[in-house]
Nucleic acid binder design. Structure first.
Lengths: 193, 193, 193, 193
DNA sequence: GATGAATGAGTTTTCATTCAT
DNA sequence: TATGAATGAAAACTCATTCAT
């Protein structure tokens, strides 16, 4: 029929969110006019305001989504393993992948938030998952981090190195080196026995 | 005399750079109109274009300044010590201080660069200093990092945890914990013997 | 049953008219989106167009209502009295009351009409009632207005002074003074013998 | 030279004010886009915001201008006469003229203000001038208004009858009748001896 | 050089009205 | 009949950059 002018509200909202996500990632927030978002989402400009109060409002909707997704991915990968060291490795692997996909957006949103709503409320989620991993691993006698919570924060922030931007055009080789270094880096930080 | 309208070119440029830095930090790049910069710098709007080709041009001038300053501070602190482990500690200490002052601007510029000029040209400088420290320390038999360069990148990125935003309102206590955890974190990563 | 979605057409129309009246009064015509009207009336947006051709059409429906109501009230009050001077007093009293309730809306509609449909078609009604009073009173030998019709117009317009806005926050005392002054004012204008 | 891209600030502001005045009068506030104002004033859109913070701000600038002008005109005409009854007549004549020119704008602004800033702060000025006339005339033994202040308010509001809209297309004859009736109306209200 | 008024393309946002369901 | 998502033209406002003085 190809009619479908009307879409379920949830889907429309998701389309707009996705369009915003893609465009902010590609060009930055300020450089993305609202009209680009709606045309990418395949809807007229005015419809945007049926789902979001303003451009700002769209921005506010994105971080939660991602932080939750990131945290969920790590948790899932960790839960799939039994051995603590392997769990730690899984955490690193998944994060590496995630950053490759979404870090930039994460960062963009993160920084936008700084100027606006004040503090970064979406970060702790991921750092918390890592902290849990370190704490529980320590309780199980597998790790030995002096201050799991703070260590988790440091581990979390170090992940930004996974952003391809950090080592020019190293290519696959550099990637592989980075993965390996990160695995070692996390193991040492966690104090793997 | 009421003259004094004229200022040495170097000073004017510096004033504008400083004004930009302060305002970008406070409100973000997109949210800072050029006029705010000139009025903060205390000069007429038109004068701006005598010192910079465009707003963008001002942005481009800032990162080098900071990256060099950061790298220089670390290098200085490291050089002031003889023992490798203490040098590492000094590196962490200085970085902590630096981030407290300037991280946000650093980040803002960093992210602006991503969408614009492409790759982050100012990061490697600092990561390079850390890499040198790890490499030289390893050569001296004090450290044992498998891949000093990559480890340095990870160490460098982890420093973002020093951003006060990362742990709500922890206050002095949390700061102290973080400093201590960071020292341990770096020592482990470096593989201090 | 959860039915009751349907309402008699007359009632729906009245609800919308009432909602428009209240909102135009509170915020002005231009500042009142159609959606506010329908939501205040408790009906979906689309339904509006079943009862009115356009927003403009709603506006057009309001003045007649009010002008007729106002004229009717005066006529009623006048008819209830026998003495001409008392009749004039009743006219003033009723007008005072009416203006306190509805002047603003009256004015809003009046002004809207100016730019739109051209001339104020609802004013003459009230002025006409006053003109009748003056003319008939004069015929009965009770009044002596040189030009009853024009005098009636002047009397009618002077009533705008009853708008509370015209004398700040005078309170009850100022109100009483105004009532008294208006009574005298009308008596003199009518040339009460 | 016909250059003159630049204009004295005062003149530009006045041009915009005048353009706004003319257009609001002709089409109403809501129906006048900002761009019409600037194009009428012969300047680009953006320049508007150098002189006014917003469209609203322009509106706010108009009433004072007019109320002062109106009051001034009356005062001037009154001062030019010696006899109190003639003074009253001059007041009516001048007001009649004024209303013919500017009433609509006056009214438009008046009503806009109602919804915005609340109370009509510009009316009292004119009513005050009339009140002075009545009070001083009474002191001189020429008038006899029971409550000069309230009577002045009633006289002032009655002037709205001068708005051509109030008697359809009566033409010159109706105008003459209205002038005459108004003169008589004011004389009676003032209680001319 | 120095100045700040001028410029106008580009953005966000609003909302009356339509229309598929 | 009833609904509210869809539509897009139109409006307000911003601001980097230019340029006459």
């Amino acid at each position: 029929m190809r009619r479908a002018r009307t879409k379920p509200a949830g889907e429309r909202r998701a389309d707009l969110l996705a369009a915003g996500r893609a465009l902010f990632l590609a060009k930055g927030i300020a450089a993305t006019p609202l009209e680009d978002i709606t045309s990418t989402a395949g809807c007229p400009k005015g419809l945007f305001y049926l789902y979001f109060r303003s451009k700002e409002d769209l921005l506010l909707g994105l971080p939660d989504e991602f932080s939750a997704e990131f945290a969920g991915r790590i948790r899932g990968a960790v839960a799939a393993e039994a051995d603590w060291t392997i769990r730690l490795g899984a955490c690193v692997r998944v994060s590496f992948e995630y950053y490759r996909d979404l870090l930039d957006l994460h960062e963009i949103l993160f920084h936008h938030a700084v100027h606006d709503a004040g503090q970064h409320r979406h970060e702790p989620l991921v750092a918390g998952v890592i902290a849990d991993l370190l704490t529980e691993g320590a309780a199980a006698g597998a790790f030995d981090a002096a201050d799991p919570k703070m260590t988790a924060v440091l581990c979390y922030t170090s992940m930004r190195a996974f952003d391809p931007g950090f080592h020019g055009g190293g290519g696959e080789l550099a990637d592989e080196r980075l993965r390996r270094a990160a695995q070692e880096f996390f193991r040492r930080s966690a104090g793997v026995r």
